[in-house]
């Protein structure tokens, strides 16, 4: 059985920055427990010697030349979809936490 509790769902929602309602927390706790019980089978399907695959097609050393391209946006393009800006920078409300 999984160890998903309402408290852990709230913690995860905090990490994911989603202000879940109480009803959502309750529903998700039940759903996640069920889902995790199913997906947890992967742990018994593999052993320590099995290598992990993070990329389906193995490639390496894929690089870009160090030159500026026409992908650069104009400031107008950059700010066009901003919910709020001051003409040159994006505007956000006060920040509570500090830089990491």
């Amino acid at each position: 059985m999984s160890d998903i509790s309402e408290e852990s769902v709230r913690h995860l929602a905090g990490l994911a920055r989603i202000a879940l309602t109480d009803a959502e927390v309750t529903a998700l706790t039940a759903e996640l427990s069920q889902i995790v019980d199913v997906v947890a089978q992967v742990t018994s399907a593999v052993d320590a010697d099995t290598p992990a695959t993070s990329h389906p097609i193995p490639l390496s050393n894929v690089y870009r030349e160090d030159v500026v391209t026409d992908d650069v946006l104009t400031p107008e393009q950059a700010l066009a979809s901003a919910p709020e800006h001051d003409g040159s920078r994006f505007k956000v409300s006060a920040i509570l936490g500090e830089e990491q």
């Binding site: 870009r64 160090d66 030159v67 500026v68 391209t69 992908d71 650069v72 946006l73 104009t74 400031p75 950059a78 700010l79 040159s88 920078r89 994006f90």
Partner: peptide
Amino acid sequence: ETKMFSSAPNNFGAEPNTNVT
């Protein structure tokens, strides 16, 4: 000349949000 993962210029002191892709 350019950024770590994008071809935007890497230079100090440009006008805000002009060195962006």
